[in-house]
Amino acid sequence: MMKKFLLCCFSVFSFLVFGQTLSSQLSETTLKLGEPAEFKINISHLTGLEVQAAPKNEMLPFHFEILSDSVQNTPNLYTRVIKFQIFEEGKFKIPPIQIKVGDSILNTIPYEVEVINTAKKEDTINDIMNNKIVDLGFKEYWELYKLYFLGGLLLIGIIALIWMYIKWGRAKKSPPLLRSHQALQELEALKNKKYIENNDFRNFYVQLIDITRNFLSQQYGFPAKELLTEDLLDYMKGQNKIAEANEKILAEVFSRGDLVKFAKIIPSHSLMENDFDNIKEFVKRSYKDIEFENIRKHV
């Protein structure tokens, strides 16, 4: 009996002398938002045994923002100090942390940290530094407002283009020169039909007169398609928009066209070619009549 008692006392003494002792400490269990705190672990009586713990900055849970994580390790003492902050309100737990010492596993005790927000709605927030007045030069103002300036120029340019299009763009779609060019194309198409070479004088004059009437209607605004030849010639003289030489050419060609149409004459090839060339030259000169008329109106 005495031997068992002495063996038990020896075991307790050996544990106290030779066993490792783990202790942990939390500086505060109630913290303000962002307030620094400290978690400390001590392991004594190591007697040279190796200590294995979580890697640096990875011992505490996710919500704990680590400020520093320092370790001091001597043959007989292991000390680890972790400083941290928490930036969310609520209760957060530090679970038991396993630390391996040699072949033994030691566990810290669990902790619970409560984080509170002490700020109030009526609290005044003061700036850390007073506001400074900074003098800005041209370069600084340019950097601040260059996009507005360039955007304004772009907008003005777009408005100017729209205004120019409204004022001149539409008018350029049907100027006198363009109408003359269109009539010349129609005359060229007539010539390619070779009515003169084939002695088809009736179709030649019918189409030549139609092209000319259509041109007078578009270029001068005459009711050329509705009026008879004599009425049209009188109307042209009364309008005074066509040069006298051009009026004479039109009168000759229109009159000859009526005679051919009703089979009263048979024109020669040279006469047909001459009438064609005269109408062509009239069409070429017509836009000059329009320009002269516009100048006369403004005088």
Rank of each mutant, 00 (worst) to 15 (best):
T29H: 04
L190R: 10
E226V: 15
Q182I: 09
S255W: 00
F201I: 02
E65P: 11
H269Y: 02
V134D: 06
I94N: 09
Q98V: 06
P223S: 02
I196H: 04
F201A: 03
W168D: 15
S24Y: 00
E89Y: 02
L60E: 03
S255H: 05
Y205P: 05
L7E: 08
L250Y: 07
K193P: 01
K56W: 07
E244R: 13
V101N: 02
I97L: 11
T229E: 11
F18M: 03
Y145L: 13
M164C: 04
N76W: 08
K83L: 07
L16F: 14
Q239S: 01
E58Y: 15
Y165K: 01
S11W: 12
N294K: 15
I41P: 11
E188S: 14
L46E: 06
I162V: 11
S217Y: 07
E89F: 03
D258K: 04
I279S: 07
N131M: 09
G151A: 00
F204D: 02
S14L: 15
E112Q: 15
I94H: 07
L136Q: 10
I196C: 09
E35V: 05
I66K: 01
A189F: 13
N278E: 04
N278M: 07
Y287R: 04
Y148E: 09
E186I: 05
N126W: 14
A245M: 00
L154F: 06
I162F: 06
V113Y: 05
A54C: 12
I209M: 08
M1Y: 14
D69R: 06
R179P: 00
G221I: 00
L16T: 13
L154A: 14
N192S: 13
L60C: 07
V113M: 04
I266S: 12
L208G: 01
N214V: 05
Q25I: 10
N192M: 13
E293C: 08
K288R: 03
L227K: 15
L250E: 01
K93Y: 10
G34D: 05
E226Y: 10
S11Y: 05
A263S: 15
G48W: 04
K248N: 09
A53L: 06
Y195W: 07
D210F: 03
L153R: 01
N107P: 02
T108P: 02
I97V: 09
I279M: 02
N214D: 14
E35R: 01
A37H: 08
Y165W: 11
S27P: 04
I290S: 10
K264F: 04
I105P: 01
K32F: 14
S268M: 08
S27E: 08
K172L: 06
L153V: 05
N107G: 07
N107C: 08
K264E: 04
E186F: 11
E65C: 06
V134A: 09
L6M: 12
E247I: 14
I279E: 03
L106S: 00
V17S: 11
Y287V: 00
D210S: 02
P267L: 08
E197H: 12
K297F: 12
F254E: 03
I295P: 06
G48D: 07
L216T: 01
Q185R: 15
D127F: 12
K280I: 02
V283L: 00
Y111I: 01
K91H: 06
E112Y: 09
K297V: 15
I156G: 11
I105T: 14
N42E: 14
K40Y: 12
E197S: 09
Y195K: 09
F292M: 08
L161K: 03
C8T: 15
E226R: 05
N294Q: 14
